[in-house]
Design a binder for these strands. Structure first.
Length: 415
RNA sequence: AGACAGGUGGCCGAGUGGUCGAAGGCGCUCGCCUGGAACGCGGGUGUGGGGCAACUCACCGAGGGUUCGAAUCCCUUCCUGUCUGCCA
């Protein structure tokens, strides 16, 4: 959630940035007036409450001393009525304000390039040369079927479209990748965590998936529970409503989980192959950081994911996402795009974001600073790598003329 | 899933309608004591909101209700423990 006080105090400046992210002027103005009104009503209510508290104490004293309480009683009852009205008003304003504030996206950092959509993302650098082939390259879906690694048809039969299953060496490669990635991250100081795949509404709200994106989530019928769309959700919310000791920062976590996404609104996109599925595996990085360190940690996380790709021998590039392509919770994001020879293009395989205080304010994750005050920390998240996409990148990049696939050296001991 | 018992500050734990934001203890911290430390003694020590401040409001798992007044009574709900059931 954005800082409402900040919006109030720097309305033009902050508002302008939010307008670029698609927030309407009306809703900004509504928030501004609601916030103001809330303050007024609350102050008025508190004056009444203070009076009521005092008089009520007096009431007790009078009774003990057998004084006449009729007059006082009448006054208290009258006051109570006024309080109830104000209380109701305050509650209503709070609720609407909350509703509106929770669907306002994060404000892009100053380092984020201005742009409308992904075409205006800025390439930061390329890593490794793209491979060349002296034979016609095949798409991963063909390679997978040839090698018996992926069964698309039966995945659909078992569940529905956008599901598949891995078999034999395909399944083993998936598992090898997961183990390799977690070990890779662990060696870089990330604690391995195994998290619930089903989480509740407050958890989903803490990281920003709810209330705005309920349609993208798989919901458990009859329960207010959801399948996680990324391990970022449980990992970040581990410290929901907690105060982390300053000395414990940064908290660096990594987890492997399946991820579940409805992919509402992607009808027709990437229908062939395993690029976009309802269920996919991902190894995730999450860091809770002191605000002063988050920029440095962000770079570390990008390097961690990029080095991982390099270690697998996969050519990729770093993209600085522009304002229009930034996700809801992110203040800045670097995407890593891996080279897909058959599609002759780079495609997203990892996304590292700094949400700054946006998530910690929602999830109430704070640290105790040296001045004794509790402050919101910064949360960062990044795919170590999307495992499925890594697998198909390996298939396409390391295919041989006979259709077989060379396993990257670092994975061999995991197979 | 059913029965019973509970959920109070960093922790333990008292508190069954009135001056309780909450006794007492532990821990932590500051000061004294000491050559230094332990012990001992004295002070401080929750969170969030509003206000320049004095101060003030809210919070005793959460949400409702009763009352002039609720940690305390009632309802709902979540969680924990024990027993039963079921299972990996």
């Amino acid at each position: 959630m954005i800082d409402l006080k900040n919006l109030q105090n720097n309305f033009d400046e902050v508002g302008e940035k939010l307008l670029k992210k698609g927030v309407s002027t009306e809703s900004l103005n509504e928030i501004k007036t609601s916030f103001q009104k809330l303050k007024e009503k609350r102050t008025a209510l508190e004056v009444l409450q203070a009076d009521q508290n005092k008089q009520s104490k007096l009431f007790g004293v009078y009774k003990k001393e057998n004084k006449d309480i009729k007059e006082l009683q009448a006054k208290l009852a009258e006051n109570k009525k006024n309080m109830a009205t104000l209380q109701e008003e305050v509650r209503e304003i709070e609720e609407t304000l909350q509703q509106k504030a929770l669907i306002i996206p994060n404000i892009p950092a100053d380092t984020v390039p201005i742009g409308v959509d992904e075409s205006e993302n800025i390439e930061i650098k390329k890593v490794l040369d793209i491979p060349t082939f002296d034979f016609p390259v095949l798409e991963h879906s063909d390679l997978a079927e040839q090698n018996g690694w992926i069964d698309f048809k039966r995945g659909v039969k078992l569940a529905k479209s956008r599901f598949s299953l891995l078999r034999g060496d395909g399944a083993r490669l998936e598992r090898a990748l997961i183990n390799y990635m977690i070990d890779f991250n662990r060696e870089r100081g990330y604690e391995e965590v195994c998290v619930p795949l089903i989480v509740n509404r407050p958890t989903m709200t803490g990281t920003g998936q709810l209330p705005k994106f309920e349609n993208d989530l798989f919901k458990i019928e009859g329960e207010d529970l959801f399948l996680i769309p990324t391990a970022e959700v449980p990992l970040t919310n581990i410290y929901n409503d907690e105060i982390v000791a300053k000395d414990d920062l940064p908290v660096k976590l990594t987890a492997y989980t399946p991820c579940f996404r409805k992919e509402a609104g992607s009808a027709g996109r990437d229908t062939r192959g395993m690029i976009r599925q309802h269920q996919f595996d991902k190894v995730e990085l999450v860091v809770l950081s002191h605000p002063d360190d988050s920029a440095k940690i962000f770079d570390e996380m990008v390097k961690c994911a990029s080095d991982l790709l390099s270690s697998l021998g996969l050519a990729h590039r770093h993209m600085n996402l522009c304002t229009g392509d930034l996700g809801f919770s992110a203040s800045s994001t670097t995407d890593l795009e891996v080279w897909f020879p058959a599609q002759n293009c780079y495609r997203e395989i990892s996304s590292i974001s700094n949400t700054q205080e946006f998530q910690s304010r929602r999830a109430k994750i704070r640290y105790k600073d040296t001045d004794g005050k509790n402050k919101f920390l910064h949360t960062l998240n990044g795919s170590s790598l999307a495992v499925g996409r890594t697998m198909i990148a390996i298939m396409e990049n390391f295919q041989k003329a006979d259709g077989s696939i060379e396993i990257p050296e670092v994975l061999k001991k995991y197979m």
